[in-house]
Structure formats: C-alpha cells, structure tokens
C-alpha cells in the first residue's frame, strides 16, 4: 500500500463515522467537514508516529497539513525523506 492508501484507510476506519473508504476522496476537506476534530488530530498524530516512525512537531502542526488525505500524505512523505 502507498502512503496515501495507508492514511486513507486509517482515516476511513478510525475517523469517518460510517467507515466507508470508498466515499473518501483524496481532496475532501477533512477539517471543514468535521472528519478531523481536536481529538481526531491526536489520534492521527499517534498513528503517524507509530506507522511511519515520524514525529510531526512545531511549525508543521498547522491545519493546512491535515486538511485532506493528500495534505497528510505530503506531510508524511516530507518527514520520511528527512
């Protein structure tokens, strides 16, 4: 599975209320649509740490980096290249 697929699967399973992965598009606005909220972001950050061994911190902890599956994947890829 690609990074994007792994993240999409996690968000669908853990944060999307009806767990329907097919419904979730890469550009869907996760924050605006209430899929990721203040507790959801905590869940996601722990997942990224455990799954990809990355620790997102500081200036990268901004809403833009978590706004969509694409944004989260880009952030993750950037950390993986560090």
């Amino acid at each position: 599975m690609s990074t994007k697929e792994i993240i999409r699967a996690f968000v669908s399973e853990e944060l999307l209320h009806d767990h329907n992965q097919n419904k979730l598009q890469d550009e869907d606005q996760l924050i605006e649509n209430g899929i990721i909220d203040s507790l959801g972001i905590m869940t996601l950050l722990v997942f990224l740490e455990e799954k990809f061994s990355i620790q997102v911190s500081g200036d990268d902890l901004v809403p833009e980096n978590f706004s969509s599956i694409t944004a989260i994947s880009s952030l993750t890829e950037r950390y993986l290249k560090k």
Binding site: D59, L61, V62
Partner: peptide, 13 residues
C-alpha cells in the same frame, strides 16, 4: 506564538 490559526494545536500539545 506559533503561526496564525495554530492555537488549537498548541493547546493540544
């Protein structure tokens, strides 16, 4: 402190 709009992230941390 931090960037504009980052308040909730800072709060969580």
């Amino acid at each position: 402190l931090g960037r504009a709009g980052q308040g909730m992230m800072i709060f969580n941390e």
